[in-house]
Simulated assay, not measured.
Amino acid sequence: MAIPAIQVARLGKYILTQTLKGNKHYPLVLMLEPLFQCNLRCKGCGKVNQPPEILNKRLSVQECIDAVEECGAPIVSIPGGEPLLHPEIPTIVSELIKRKKFVYLCTNGILMPERIHEFKPSPYLTFNLHLDGPAEVHDKVVCKQGVFDSAVRAIKLLKSKGFRVNTNTTLFGGQTAEKAAEFFDFLMDLKVDGMTLSSAFSYEAAEDQDAFLTRPQSEKLFREIFTIGKNKNWDFSHSSFYLDFLAGNQPNYKCSPWGNPCRSVHGWQRPCYLLEDGFVSSYKELMEDTDWDKFGVGNDPRCANCMVHCGFEPTAVADSVKRPIKGAMLALKGVSVK
């Protein structure tokens, strides 16, 4: 199962509680970036372009705990940078698990063999391995040979030790549906617990702007992928409504940038993980002083081609709560493809 039953139940209860309270802007996933430093320089990432004084900065254990408690989201995703470069990352993870937060620790896998002994398997912990395609694709995206093999070894090692493992795949321009389908088959053969998908979004800080997909290109690619995968047992860590959105079948979805707030070494990022319109010092200030209606497709030209899960998954999840019968039908047939 892509998402643990305990997480589904806890998330459902949380969303229902927020709905009954009449809350419109509530977080589902906190994007916690304890550092920007990385041991790779991927062409789709702009984090490593930060000045040295920022790359050398770390959030402390207490700052991470404070951010999680201030935000209140039931799920915490820890990207970076490369989180395994943070000397206190095992303590951070342990403290969040004590608070019964579902933690997704994102990593490229390079440092996994030397740090795995610092973690313990838990239903609250999932390692999220970055893999953007087969070896020739992934190593080109991360601009370094051998990283694909390191990630695969890390997946096998983690699974052998009893850890939950997801993969995180961003599809860039030039990738075909056939190759993507073969890659997903490969990942399922590795017995990963779930796969996370996204189309490459050309946010301003990214280095290689030519590698990104337009929205029509993304929809066409995902429709073709899901057509091929109709009779396959792929486990995606997404709501069926979000997968339907990727295939172009939910054209009216609006972004919910408040659903995945981001706390980094700069502070709370406004308005979302991929756009930088300044930072504020508190979650309360982020939620109350941000003009959310300014952003999203149709409002901000920077968002025109965005289909990224950090903005649209919260919308899809909220929709699935409103339309549970249709959600069940979509889940049964994988995803509706026109």
Rank of each mutant, 00 (worst) to 15 (best):
Met1Arg: 14
Met1Ala: 15
Ala2His: 13
Tyr14Asn: 08
Ile15Pro: 01
Ile15Arg: 06
Lys21Asn: 13
Asn23Glu: 15
Pro27Gln: 06
Phe36Cys: 07
Leu40Lys: 10
Cys45Asp: 02
Asn49His: 14
Lys57Cys: 09
Leu59His: 14
Ser60Lys: 15
Glu63Pro: 01
Glu63Leu: 02
Cys64Asp: 01
Gly72Trp: 04
Gly80Leu: 10
Glu82Asn: 14
His86Lys: 13
Thr91Val: 14
Leu96Tyr: 07
Phe102Arg: 03
Leu105Gly: 12
Leu111Lys: 10
Glu118Gly: 04
Pro121Arg: 08
Pro121Thr: 07
Tyr124Glu: 09
Thr126Trp: 01
Pro134Ala: 08
Phe148Lys: 00
Ser150Val: 04
Arg153Cys: 07
Leu157Asp: 00
Phe172Glu: 06
Phe172Ser: 04
Gly174Arg: 13
Thr176Leu: 05
Asp185Ser: 05
Leu190Glu: 06
Met195Gln: 10
Ala205Val: 08
Asp208Phe: 08
Asp208Pro: 04
Asp208Leu: 06
Gln209Asp: 09
Phe212Pro: 00
Thr214Gly: 06
Pro216Gly: 05
Pro216Met: 06
Ser218Asn: 01
Ile228Val: 14
Lys230Ser: 13
Asn233Lys: 15
Trp234Asn: 00
Phe236Thr: 00
Ser240Val: 12
Leu246Asn: 09
Gln250Leu: 12
Pro251Asp: 07
Asn252Ile: 04
Cys255Pro: 05
Trp258His: 02
Pro271Thr: 03
Glu276Met: 03
Ser281Thr: 06
Lys284Tyr: 08
Met287Gln: 10
Gly298Thr: 10
Asn305Ser: 11
Phe312Arg: 10
Ser320Trp: 07
Val337His: 04
Lys338Thr: 15
